[in-house]
Design a protein around this nucleic acid. Structure first.
Length: 504
RNA sequence: GGCGCCUUCGUCUAUCGGUUAGGACGCGAGGUUCUCAACCUCGAAAGAGGGGUUCAACUCCCCUAGGCGCUACCA
């Protein structure tokens, strides 16, 4: 039997990075064993589900490169089937009508319910003491026919236990005594989560359910439903959770945008890098290696490699330098500087377009220059955003001067105010018929430096700030050559930098 | 409260009874250099606690502690 897995998010918000990781693991497993990776949108909570959220989830999956097979299933379309399943169990005596009036689910009575079950657990009260559980069928039918509202509850057997072999956590058991007669169908006819999931997983032919371990107890309930329905349950694999620093819950309310996958797209992450990072949160191939291209992720993936303890998504709030997990940031930089240039180029193009720095020439007449420039500056970049911010001076005459850089590399050496335009002049004469290449530039700059009796660093760094506005970057010889003779001369003569006062 | 799951450097992890407990991120120091967040070298940094089992335990068992999850006519 071929493997079929599914990712089944409820569209009640953005795609959480924890969910994204669940999707990734499902995807990796499916691709590894040649199975199908299906998508099901669990939109049965009409009040909270939105189309926008569905779109955002789909976008997120696409961004991560997790392409799904077959048609997307919308759970709300299957409500009739869910109801039919509940009725079937009722008819077979495996479920019963509960005529207890519905209580509003307020915080208050949810708490009472918990306290109630606490008493039940202490033996004071049984999970099976519902007065309608053993109601005679005739009586139950009569009241239902009379129009009295009821919920349908699963009739959990009196003695026994549910058991399954989790692919990550090993053998799992739970006594029936600890599982209530869960509601399958609300009194308004609305099917509930556990029923809907089981019905859909059966209908979709799901063979492996891979999801967060927050579902570990749900799984026992679902196994019960499978058994009542007379269907063999699928194989289960539960994943450790991703927690916030301090081991708290990682939530949008508390932690904001960093938990949303789209944030990483919007802040200039390379999909492959973030995917790689996510895969390593709670999973290991057992080797001393961090960089895994998708193919290798697929090849190496196994349930045995999944950790059992929760992983912390490590970041520091209010620290721009460590706004998200350092390893994710590092991984992104690693990808930017080492991935095939041709794969990076389209992403850089999109970034420059968004920043109005893109010019069509970069793709034809100036393609050679452009590709070389990107290859040069990517060595020090962490995100795609850096190409339009730190890299701005390569693509536009309109760039800012970092006051700290001006101070450190220019203001400190007032002689530069004459030297740099002097260097411009020297370039102008020296390179009339000589190619403006690193080797030639070096000869000229070294000679110039010696004449002025200063250190090479003073000239180089002064020029660096004049040409790029900042204090860091590639070798200046490369920068000169990349910026080009004309722009170099123009910028060395410019007074703009000198007017960037750092008096504050 | 109950039930369940978990516990190796700050973080992600390796180890499947015998290791100086390894790697990565981050951090620190040094080096290279025209600068640097790049590169190179080095460094600090861990088996929650207590009992067993064993010649030998991070590794197996038990207890304790702590963390997490679930505990709805939500999903």
């Amino acid at each position: 039997m071929s493997v079929r897995v599914r990712f089944a998010p409820s569209p009640t918000g953005y795609l959480h990075i924890g969910s994204a990781r669940s999707a990734l693991f499902n995807y990796l497993y499916a691709r590894k064993v040649g199975g199908k990776f299906l998508l099901r949108i669990e939109d049965t909570d009409l009040a909270r589900s939105t189309d926008e959220s569905t779109r955002s989830i789909l976008e997120g999956l696409e961004w991560l490169g997790l392409d799904h097979d077959e048609e997307i299933v919308f759970q709300s379309n299957n409500a009739d089937k869910h109801r039919a399943a509940a009725r079937k169990l009722l008819a077979e005596g495996k479920a019963y009508r509960d005529f207890t009036p519905k209580a509003e689910p307020t915080d208050q009575n949810v708490k009472e319910g918990i306290a109630d079950r606490a008493r039940a657990a202490q033996g004071v009260k049984s999970m099976r003491d519902n007065q309608y559980r053993e109601l005679y069928r005739e009586e139950s039918d009569r009241r239902a026919d009379a129009g009295e509202p009821y919920a349908i509850r699963l009739k959990v057997p009196l003695a026994g236990k549910t058991a399954f072999e989790d692919q990550v956590y090993g053998p799992q058991e739970r006594s029936y005594d600890d599982t209530e007669d869960l509601v399958l169908l609300r009194s308004d006819g609305h099917p509930l989560y556990n029923l809907a999931v089981v019905c859909d997983d059966i209908e979709m032919g799901i063979t492996h359910v891979i999801r967060g371990q927050d579902h570990l107890t749900n799984t026992h309930k679902q196994v019960l439903i499978y058994e009542a329905l007379g269907v063999t349950p699928p194989t289960f694999a539960h994943l450790p959770l991703i927690m916030a620093p301090g081991k708290g819950k990682l939530s949008k309310r508390k932690h904001g945008e960093i938990v949303s996958l789209t944030t990483y797209r919007d802040t200039g992450f390379i999909p492959a890098a973030f995917r790689n990072f996510l895969a390593l949160l709670g999973w290991s191939a057992g080797e001393e290696k961090e960089i895994y291209p998708l193919g290798e992720l697929i090849e190496k993936f196994s349930f045995e490699g999944i950790h059992r303890s929760n992983a912390i998504f490590n970041f520091k709030e209010n620290d721009p330098r460590h706004w998200t997990d350092d390893k994710a940031l590092w991984m992104n930089a690693e990808y930017i500087r080492t991935m095939p240039l041709d794969d990076l180029l389209p992403m850089v193009r999109a970034e420059l377009r968004n920043s109005k720095l893109w010019r069509e020439e970069y793709e034809d007449l100036e393609k050679v220059w452009f590709d070389r420039t990107i290859d040069l500056i990517r060595q020090r970049f962490f995100t795609l955003k850096d190409f339009s911010s730190q890299g701005r001076a390569y693509f536009s005459e309109d760039f800012d001067f970092d006051p700290a850089a001006v101070n450190k590399n220019l203001t400190k050496f007032p002689e530069l105010r004459e030297w740099l335009p002097g260097l411009a002049e020297r370039f102008e004469t020296e390179f009339q018929n000589v190619p403006f290449t690193e080797e030639n530039i070096e000869t000229v700059v070294r000679a110039f430096t010696e004449e002025k009796g200063t250190k090479l660093g003073v000239i180089m760094n002064g020029a660096r700030t004049m040409l790029t506005g900042v204090a860091v970057g590639p070798s200046m010889l490369s920068v000169f050559e990349t910026i080009g003779l004309d722009r170099t001369i123009l910028r060395l003569r410019s007074q703009v930098a000198w007017n960037t006062s750092n008096s504050a």
